[in-house]
Design a protein around this nucleic acid. Structure first.
Length: 411
DNA sequence: TCTGGGGTCCTAGGACCC
DNA sequence: TCTGGGGTCCTAGGACCC
């Protein structure tokens, strides 16, 4: 087994940093990037805001409470995807093996670049300097023998950090590291492991595998490996990722609704967003999933149906979603609606046999092109026009891998 | 005055077929 | 007609990530 050298690079407060760079008046101040609607949470905040207790996921009123001077900035997706794409271009000057984990995090396998650049630290310094110079933003870099440890390392020093975990260091670093710092162990898993008296990675690594598999099934073996700092997963470069497995959209409504006409209108809207993206990816799916969250926030349900044929036309998705809705009685006003297409088939381009279907396909493609250029809802079905507000104001989540990142790879 | 939105993976149980 | 076992497909729900 050859020793690999992996970098994990994490942009510090990415959206907020981009905004502070774009508008000098925001620099040095506590800012929070938020969505445009009324029911939005804080997506990212600047380090100045974090210093007074602002956290990702906080409601706006809560952020304002802990930090009264907090400046709210409505997110601008195009800025972030553009910057992210450019940053990933920089990464590829040092290795072709770059995997975007999210819009602001990437792994680089530099094993085969060390001979050219000297060392992983040198590569890290070069990248940090270029990102700071070109975009005025900082990043934290972790260097380690695998992805799990590189990500752990990049988290150890923020902002603007550089942390190296050498193969010899692994056991020492993990011994007292809390398990929840590992990527893959969330709140629930932490609690379950705590109940087994496992609090640190060292304890997790020493735990008998049978105890873990007995409680967690196949995940148990993986947990043991994680505790030992073992991770063989490869860095998967652009264009070699697994094909997408589902395409979905959901929306928390500006206000709770129980009017069936309004509910159907939102469903049409969501179906159109799902369909248009599915067509862009050249996928169609057989399973349609409808998701509803009630006004009380705590009660929600999902229901799915599987069709005989694969579909990706918006009206077909809409009809399927409606058919699911028809099987239930809504108990409360609705807070959130979601539509998801899965069970996907990736298809080659194929023209329908019949004139009528060809026309429909061409019309759809023309619509997709305009939407791709001018924002997702620039052109859409007439019945949506009344309900358009709010759709354009969504902020993409940092985890969204936008096409902007994928596209920069095409040379 | 509450708590977004995009995904992936895993499990359990039931229907159905051989 | 009854029995059991294996495999696949489907639905529902939960955990995890950013």
């Amino acid at each position: 087994m050859t020793v690999r050298t992996i970098l994990h690079i994490d942009m510090n407060a990415f959206f907020a940093s981009v905004e502070q760079q774009a508008n000098p008046e925001l620099r040095g101040k506590p800012i929070a990037v938020v969505g445009g609607g009324g029911r939005t949470v804080i997506t990212t905040s600047s380090y100045e805001a974090r210093a007074c207790g602002v956290k990702t996921g906080m409601a706006i009123w809560e952020g304002k409470r802990v930090c009264p001077e907090l400046i709210l900035v409505v997110g601008d997706n195009r800025k972030y995807t553009y910057t992210s794409g450019k940053i990933n271009e920089i990464f590829r000057d040092y290795t072709p093996e770059v995997e975007a984990f999210s819009i602001d995090e990437s792994w680089l396998d530099v094993t085969h670049s060390l001979g050219i650049f000297g060392s992983a630290e040198t590569i890290a310094y070069l990248i940090k300097a270029r990102i700071r110079h070109s975009f005025g933003i900082t990043c934290s870099v972790g260097i380690a023998p695998n992805k799990l440890l590189a990500k752990l390392a990049s988290d150890m020093q923020k902002p603007d950090g550089l942390t190296v975990i050498t193969p010899d260091d692994v056991a020492r670093v993990l011994e007292r590291m809390p398990i929840k710092d590992l990527c893959g162990i969330g709140r629930r898993m932490e609690k379950n492991l705590n109940m087994m008296s496992i609090y640190t990675c060292g304890e997790l690594g020493r735990c008998e595998e049978g105890r873990l598999t007995g409680k967690f099934g196949v995940i148990g073996s993986r947990l043991k490996q994680m505790g030992l700092g073992i991770d063989h997963s490869p860095v998967v470069p652009f264009g070699e990722e697994d094909e997408v497995k589902s395409v979905g959209h959901s929306k928390t409504l500006e206000r709770d609704i129980d009017d069936p006409v309004e509910i159907r209108r939102v469903l049409l809207q969501l179906s159109e967003m799902v369909g248009s993206r599915a067509r862009k990816y050249s996928v169609s799916g057989r399973t349609i999933h409808l998701y509803v969250r009630y006004a009380d926030f705590f009660t929600s349900w999902g229901k799915q149906t599987t069709l005989k044929n694969h579909i990706n036309q918006s009206d077909e998705i809409y009809r399927a979603a409606l058919s699911i809705l028809a099987t239930v009685d809504l108990e409360q006003p609705v807070r959130l609606l979601g539509v998801c297409l899965s069970n996907l088939k990736h298809q080659a381009e194929q023209l329908p046999l019949f004139e009528e279907e060809r026309k429909k396909l061409f019309a759809t493609q023309a619509m997709d092109k305009v939407n791709a250029r001018f924002g997702s809802m620039a052109v859409t079905f007439g019945s949506l026009l009344k309900g358009r507000e709010g759709v354009e104001s969504r902020v993409i989540p940092p985890s969204w891998r936008p096409d902007g990142i994928k596209n920069v790879d095409v040379k």
